[in-house]
Design a binder for these strands. Structure first.
Length: 423
RNA sequence: GGAGAAGUACCCAAGUGGUGAAGGGGCUCCCCUGCUAAGGGAGUAGGUUGGGUGACUGGCGCGAGGGUUCAAAUCCCUCCUUCUCCGCCA
């Protein structure tokens, strides 16, 4: 959520920022400003009446005690009561209206990111490794998985439906090995491991920005108002919802494994084969709470930490800075890490590392005091995949495949796999 | 899922309708004491929204949200969480 004060003080800045996202929200900016004026005028009026009520409440018992007549003051109080009551109703309507609009605004893109229309305007920052070369015709991971008997979408389709997978034997073990490898590596680099709930309540989904705008993207439970998490970002960021953290604690860094659930509404027909786009997938997530003064240093570090696991796995990848038209709703700046996927013949997103600045913190009321004497201020929240597990399996199967159909296990995974080859 | 109890500040805790939410511990500062211990004094309800150029000043805050009342921590309703017991279960 944006700060209403920014809109009050510099509406043009907000309008321009939205245009960088290819969104014309001029009318909404003007509307929210008009509501804000009304709301504050009414607030002043009601506060004065409430002040009068409070003063009278102190007088009434005094007068009664002295045996005086309170009928005049009571008449006045009855009159105020009605005005306050209807005023409060009106006020909460205005507040709701204002908040509804405020929830519509995406974050303001950071000035350092490229301005652009869509993913074609994203800027490559660096590459690591070279696209894998083969002296045979490489197969796609879904074919490798089927031939080795380690990936089974057909059975999952029977048991559940489309866009689910069974992993079997070495496939299941590979998934588990990668999760452990990721968590161990991040833990060694200062992240505290947490294992979160996979369902969260509405307040948490609102805190990180999935709601109210993107409810159709999430799976919601029928009997409770709970949502299956689309990413561990949601429960882990919301761990500190409504907290006031100590400045000395920052940055707080967590890593978390979770299953992730996405409805993939609007993705029909895209990436229908293999592990790239599933309703349920595993991910290890990195989450940071940082001092605003250093949050962009933390974004660089977090991105490096995510890249590290790909480097240790020997998977060629590149880092891309998303342009203003391509960043997510809550993000101010995002680096995507893309891994080389031979079957696609291009780099495919495997991690997304973002600084949300105070956008989530304002929604979720996550604050800190730099020193105990300071006033509480909003933290900056960051997160990034460290990294998506299913896509890592796909990348390993494809990049490490051999001419005979077997797959070499990357060296760092061998202790976890208990073998150096899958065949 | 059923029954009962409870949620007040960093911690413990008083407060069942009426003029600013007791008290204690802890913490901070000051005084005294050669040091320590003990003692004395002061401060310590955060936070959030508003108004004012400003010194200042108002509203809301006792788990959350509604309601009754001139007036709610206190009465009523709904929900959440915790504890005890029962049931169920990995």
């Amino acid at each position: 959520m944006l700060d209403i004060r920014i809109i009050r003080e510099n509406p043009q800045l907000v309008k321009d920022a939205m245009k960088k996202r290819n969104k014309d929200m001029d009318a909404l900016v003007d509307e929210v400003l008009a509501i804000d004026v009304q709301r504050r005028e009414l607030t002043v009026k009601l506060d004065q009446l409430k002040q009068e009520q409070n003063a009278a409440s102190r007088e009434i018992p005094k007068i009664k005690k002295e045996g005086g007549d309170i009928s005049a003051i009571m008449a006045r109080m009855n009159e105020i009561k009605e005005t306050v009551k209807s005023g409060d109703v009106q006020l909460s309507e205005l507040e709701a209206k204002q908040q509804k609009i405020m929830y519509e605004f995406p974050n303001i893109p950071n000035p350092t990111i490229p301005v652009g229309k869509d993913d074609s305007d994203n800027v490559e920052i660096r590459r690591w490794g070279e696209p894998t070369a083969f002296d045979f015709e490489p197969k796609a991971h879904w074919d490798i998985g089927a031939d080795l008997g380690i990936l089974d979408p057909e059975t999952a389709a029977k048991v559940t439906g489309a866009r689910f997978h069974f992993y079997k034997a070495a496939g299941a073990r590979l998934e588990r090995a990668i999760i452990n490898f990721f968590l161990n590596t991040h833990t060694e680099h200062g992240y505290t491991e947490v294992f979160p709930p996979f369902m969260v309540n509405r307040a948490s989904m609102t805190g990180t920005g999935q709601l109210p705008k993107f409810e159709e993207d999430a799976f919601r439970l029928e009997r409770e108002d709970y949502f299956l998490i689309p990413t561990a970002e949601v429960p882990v960021t919301n761990m500190h919802r409504s907290d006031i953290l100590e400045g000395a604690q920052l940055p707080i860094s967590y890593c978390a494994y979770s299953a992730c659930f996405r409805a993939e509404a609007g993705s029909a027909g895209r990436d229908t084969r293999g592990l790239i786009r599933q309703h349920q997938f595993n991910k290890v997530e990195l989450v940071k709470f940082a001092d605003p003064e250093t949050s962009y240093d933390e974004l660089e570090k977090l991105t490096n930490d995510a890249e590290r696991v790909l480097q240790l796995l020997g998977l060629p990848h590149r880092v891309v800075c998303l342009c203003s038209g391509d960043i997510g709703f809550s993000s101010a700046k995002t680096y995507d890490i893309e891994v080389w996927m031979p079957s696609y013949g291009r780099y495919v997103e495997i991690s997304s590392c973002s600084n949300f600045e105070d956008f989530q913190a304002r929604r979720a009321a996550i604050r800190f005091k730099r020193t105990p004497a300071d006033k509480a201020q909003l933290v900056h929240t960051l997160n990034g995949s460290g990294v998506a597990v299913g896509r890592t399996v796909a990348a390993i199967l494809e990049n490490y495949q051999n001419a005979d159909g077997s797959v070499t296990v990357p060296e760092v995974l061998r202790p976890y796999m208990g073998t150096d080859i899958i065949k």
